[in-house]
Computed example of a mutant assay.
Amino acid sequence: MLTGSTLARRALGRELKRLREAKGLFQSQGGKLIGVSPQTIGRLEDGLPTKVSDLYMNVLCDGYEATADERSAILELAQEVRATQKSGGGWWRAYADELNTGFDHLLGLEEAARKLSIWRNRLVPGLLQTPAYRRTIAWTESPNMPTAQVDKRVEMNSSRQNRLHDPKFTMDILLWECVLRDQVGGPGVMEDQLNSLAAASERPNLSIRVVPFTASAHRGSLVESFTLLEFPKLAATGMIEPPVVFVECLTGDLYLERATEVQRYRDTFAEIARIAWDRDTSRQFILSIAKEYGAQ
């Protein structure tokens, strides 16, 4: 099964950049080899959509003096990118008009990932939101949004959740108690959402744990919500893409890939996990709060 063009493009771009820099060439010089701008070479190396024909790849490999094995890996990755693009790309293409800038990149990474480690200090993660909860968020963000547009966003999020049915895909989720207490949509919406969370926590490929207000001081109160994405081997080359950290910010989302940055968030997640309740205790706590909402 293809791992998706997003992952293959990132691997292809990383290899081409490595070869170019090993040769001591600038992006402008790489562009001259195939008659494109330095910006196009930059897009290619950043894993963004651009032309990846075998002709281009072979010319770049010639100019970068790639070995036979390196050339073979480049051509296999390019083939994987084209094969996925030919099949129409990811499922989210049908919702292109509803995607915020850059969100399609997150969906591509999410679809390719084998594991997500998620810390949330505000909202329930999108992969676990009920339709009513997601609808409330959409109207909170844009109160004048037409109902049909909101419906499409809710439908998109439901399609996104098909990822949960893949037994090879796992999620380790840490929720601050605030996520459970914040009445998004009111008691009825929250009761349904928390019961849905409790049910999801019984899936073998999901772990949902709560960090209570009574927990000792931890880094989670100092950072924004974030997701650490880890990836499987690429089918074409057997290479493993480095992990990525996605950080949600009010002024713009961040994608962090530097090893030192990723390790800092990995350490932060481990520290928060250390003081979180176990799965069973968390599930019972979630159900108890759902019961409180039901009594209102």
Score class of each variant (00 low, 15 high):
157 N>K: 09
216 S>Y: 10
156 M>T: 13
165 H>N: 15
163 R>S: 14
200 A>F: 06
181 R>H: 05
198 A>I: 13
162 N>S: 15
210 V>E: 00
148 A>K: 11
149 Q>N: 01
184 V>D: 05
215 A>I: 09
137 I>G: 04
139 W>G: 02
158 S>W: 04
164 L>C: 14
186 G>H: 00
136 T>P: 03
174 L>N: 02
173 I>V: 07
143 P>E: 10
155 E>K: 15
152 K>I: 11
137 I>V: 03
129 Q>P: 05
131 P>M: 09
209 R>W: 00
209 R>A: 00
147 T>G: 08
150 V>Q: 06
162 N>K: 15
173 I>L: 05
150 V>Y: 00
130 T>G: 06
181 R>S: 10
196 S>A: 13
178 C>S: 09
138 A>I: 15
197 L>P: 09
185 G>P: 07
170 T>S: 10
175 L>A: 05
163 R>H: 14
176 W>Y: 13
207 S>D: 00
167 P>N: 00
172 D>K: 01
135 R>E: 11
170 T>G: 07
168 K>P: 13
150 V>H: 03
165 H>G: 15
130 T>F: 12
216 S>N: 11
198 A>T: 12
188 G>V: 15
212 P>I: 05
207 S>I: 01
213 F>Y: 07
175 L>G: 03
216 S>G: 11
184 V>Y: 04
146 P>C: 00
171 M>K: 11
152 K>M: 15
137 I>Q: 03
156 M>W: 11
183 Q>M: 11
132 A>N: 04
160 R>S: 12
186 G>K: 03
155 E>V: 12
176 W>F: 09
135 R>P: 07
186 G>A: 05
187 P>K: 06
155 E>A: 12
142 S>E: 09
168 K>R: 14
200 A>Q: 09
134 R>L: 07
207 S>M: 05
154 V>D: 01
129 Q>L: 07
153 R>Q: 08
143 P>F: 06
214 T>G: 02
139 W>V: 12
141 E>Q: 13
168 K>E: 13
160 R>E: 13
167 P>Y: 02
151 D>S: 04
213 F>E: 03
149 Q>K: 10
174 L>F: 00
200 A>V: 07
186 G>C: 00
209 R>L: 06
134 R>T: 08
195 N>P: 11
165 H>S: 15
209 R>C: 01
194 L>T: 02
143 P>M: 09
190 M>C: 11
180 L>Y: 08
137 I>H: 03
138 A>P: 09
192 D>S: 14
193 Q>F: 11
150 V>F: 05
176 W>P: 02
207 S>Q: 01
191 E>R: 07
195 N>H: 14
158 S>E: 09
210 V>P: 02
166 D>W: 10
216 S>V: 13
153 R>M: 09
129 Q>W: 02
164 L>T: 14
138 A>K: 10
133 Y>H: 05
195 N>G: 06
163 R>M: 14
203 R>D: 07
216 S>F: 12
184 V>M: 01
164 L>Y: 11
157 N>C: 08
144 N>P: 08
149 Q>H: 11
212 P>H: 08
194 L>D: 01
129 Q>R: 05
138 A>F: 12
196 S>C: 10
183 Q>Y: 05
151 D>R: 12
204 P>T: 09
